Simulated assay, not measured.
Amino acid sequence: MSTPQDQSIIGESPAFLEVIDQTSRAAKHGRPVLVIGERGTGKELIAARLHFLSPRWESNFIQVNCAALTESLLESELFGHEAGSFTGATSKRIGRFEEAHGGTLFMDEIATCSMSAQEKILRITEYGTFQRVGGNKVLTVDVRLIGATNIDLPSAADAGEFRHDLLDRLALDVITLPPLRARKEDIILLAFHFGQRAAHDRDWSSFPGFSEDMIEALQDYHWPGNIRELKNVVERAVYHAEDEFEPVHILELDPFRSPWRPKPAGPFQQNRTTKTATQSPNHDSPVMPETLGPTDYNETVAKVEKDLLQKALKANKHNQRDTAVYLNLTYHQLRHQLKKHDLL
């Protein structure tokens, strides 16, 4: 399993290069750093770069996902505990701050920490001291703290959800990562990188690249899941490709897309209905064929897709670009579907 320090940071866009320069400057000092960015933008890779370019690079780089632990477990994870401090604590446990002594502790999703944990983290950043859970002995550590989050911490502090004094201590350097949609120049560069790795995993002799339609579709998409989503989409495309010598051309952005996809319950259904009505007020939903016995799955799906395409084209007077918007597809995705169903 790869770790952040094993993975390459790739890009050439101005927004990306500015972040790399800022990271290199911040790596030189041993003070706390905050890394802010949407999900999938590579916050853990920047944190690793901060550590391995710093004077602490030979010491431990310890990581903890704060959102994955309950309040009580998080404090035990971070600060350790003494034997008998709570039910199940049969022996003393060293916490992540002690493990990171002399090195760096990366706290992902730091905004999810409880106020109690934040108070203890503040003490460590100010004085380098803490106590294990259930202990009285004051311990001293030398740790550089890197925190990451995808929320606006000043707003969280104003709302009473994050300590202002801790925010002040952590915000010596704040590195805000641009989303992938702001790094248009990097999309195909990253896609080829992920494609080459997926081709290697499939034991292909080489990576044949992408078709022109797929390259345009990759560039047109808004990538709400950022680099992580791009990686998944490219891997899916390569793994589903049948010919290693033909450019990869089938792009599946939503693997859940199906006429039989279960409808969300509760408020999610209401939100989805509202959004659909706003985007496509005259949308005619495809009618699912009634079956009395066994049926051919692929044939049935093809009929539903073709029927939807024909109705959408008619509703938009056969203007393909308007039809693509109507169906929430890119122009090139629509063209691919029209070719697939012999509607061109």
Rank of each mutant, 00 (worst) to 15 (best):
F207G: 02
K303Q: 13
A48I: 01
G266Q: 15
A159R: 08
G160H: 11
M288D: 07
F97K: 01
K43V: 02
N271P: 10
A117H: 02
A157W: 00
L251H: 01
R132K: 10
N328D: 13
N271G: 12
P264G: 04
W223R: 04
L230A: 09
L145V: 12
I175V: 03
K92I: 10
A315D: 12
A198D: 04
Q219E: 11
E58P: 11
S280K: 08
S85F: 04
Q320F: 05
A100W: 02
A68E: 08
K137G: 08
R169T: 07
H164N: 14
V233P: 00
A199D: 07
T323D: 00
G11E: 02
L343K: 06
E185W: 09
K28W: 08
Q219R: 13
L292K: 13
P267M: 14
E216P: 15
G42K: 04
L309D: 05
P14V: 02
Q118H: 15
G147E: 06
D254Y: 14
E126G: 10
W223E: 11
I188G: 08
W260D: 09
R257N: 13
F16N: 00
M214F: 03
L344G: 09
I188E: 14
G293C: 09
A199K: 05
C66L: 07
K303A: 09
I20L: 15
F192V: 13
R228M: 13
A324M: 12
S211L: 05
P179C: 03
G266L: 15
S116D: 07
S91Y: 07
H101Q: 12
T125K: 00
H164C: 09
P264R: 14
Q310A: 09
K43E: 06
L180V: 04
V174F: 08
D108R: 03
L218E: 03
L172W: 15
T273N: 14
V325P: 03
